[in-house]
Every structure is written in structure tokens, then in C-alpha cells.
Simulated scan of single mutants.
Amino acid sequence: MSDTDLAPSIGFDDFLKVDVRVGQIIKAEPFPEARKPAYKLTIDFGPVVGVKKSSAQITHHYTLDDLQDRKVAAVVNFPPRQIGPVKSEVLTLGFPDADGHVVLVGVDRDLPLGGRLF
């Protein structure tokens, strides 16, 4: 499926199965072992979800300093996925720009960590 194709229709109950939470990046590191340029992220989702790791191909628009303390949205209930030497525990969300580079989904207010998307 390309990003111009619509995904199949789902019911509201299907949407509720996807657990998207707000977290705060507490550590961003280089990920030189990745096949495509990426960073290793450590994200705090508050007391319910805790601190999780993610890898993200966001090097085009963001430096490591840009990411420190940034609030992001992530799917927290996918099974962990091994990406090289990193076990990615959450899927950090973003949209492609006109050239296909990822722009992170963020929030424009100070929200409590772990808040769930609805």
C-alpha cells in the first residue's frame, strides 16, 4: 500500500485496540548499526507504560539535541521488534514530508506522560 492509498475501513473497536500514548524522549543516541540512518530513542511514557526504547528514521529533520525532552506519540502495544542490536519496544509515529522524510507527530501543549489518544 502506498501512502496515497486508503487503508481498509475498520470499526471503532479495531481503533481502540491500537494504544497510542504521549511520551517524552529522555535520551537520543546515534544508531550507526541501522541499515538506514536512524536514532535510538529512550522514551518515558509515565508510570503506567514506563520507559521504552524505539528506533526511528528521523535523522533528516532532527538532530540529537532537537530530540531531548521532546514530546512524541507512539504505539505502545505492538510486540517488540528486533532492529539490528536494538529491541524496539514502541513505534514512534510520524508523517512523510514531500520527499518521504519523517516528521514526528507531536503535541502542542504540556500533557501528562502516558496520556492515551482518543
Rank of each mutant, 00 (worst) to 15 (best):
M1W: 11
M1D: 13
S2Y: 08
T4E: 13
T4K: 13
L6Q: 11
A7F: 12
A7K: 12
P8Y: 06
G11A: 13
D13C: 08
F15Q: 08
F15R: 09
L16Y: 12
L16F: 11
L16I: 11
K17T: 14
V18Y: 09
V18M: 14
V22N: 06
Q24R: 14
A28F: 00
E29Q: 14
P30G: 10
P30A: 15
F31M: 05
F31A: 06
P32C: 11
E33G: 05
R35G: 08
R35L: 14
R35P: 02
K36R: 09
K36A: 01
P37V: 07
P37K: 12
A38P: 03
T42E: 14
I43D: 02
I43Y: 08
D44T: 01
F45S: 05
P47I: 00
V48C: 04
V51F: 05
V51T: 14
V51S: 05
K52C: 12
K52H: 10
K52L: 13
K53D: 13
S54T: 02
Q57R: 14
Q57N: 09
Q57M: 09
Q57D: 03
T59W: 06
H60N: 07
H60A: 10
H61E: 05
L64E: 00
L67V: 07
D69C: 01
R70K: 15
K71T: 10
A73G: 04
A74S: 00
A74I: 02
V75Y: 08
V75I: 15
V76S: 00
N77D: 06
N77A: 01
P79G: 00
Q82L: 12
Q82W: 04
G84I: 01
G84L: 00
V86N: 01
V86W: 03
V86S: 02
E89P: 03
V90L: 04
L91R: 07
T92M: 09
L93M: 15
L93K: 10
G94C: 12
F95G: 10
A98T: 07
D99A: 11
D99C: 02
D99W: 00
D99E: 15
H101G: 00
V102W: 03
V103H: 07
L104F: 05
V105E: 04
V105A: 15
V105H: 06
G106D: 02
G106Y: 02
V107S: 10
D108K: 05
D108R: 02
R109C: 10
R109D: 12
R109V: 14
D110V: 08
L111Q: 05
P112D: 07
L113A: 09
G115P: 02
G115V: 15
R116Y: 04
F118V: 13
F118M: 15
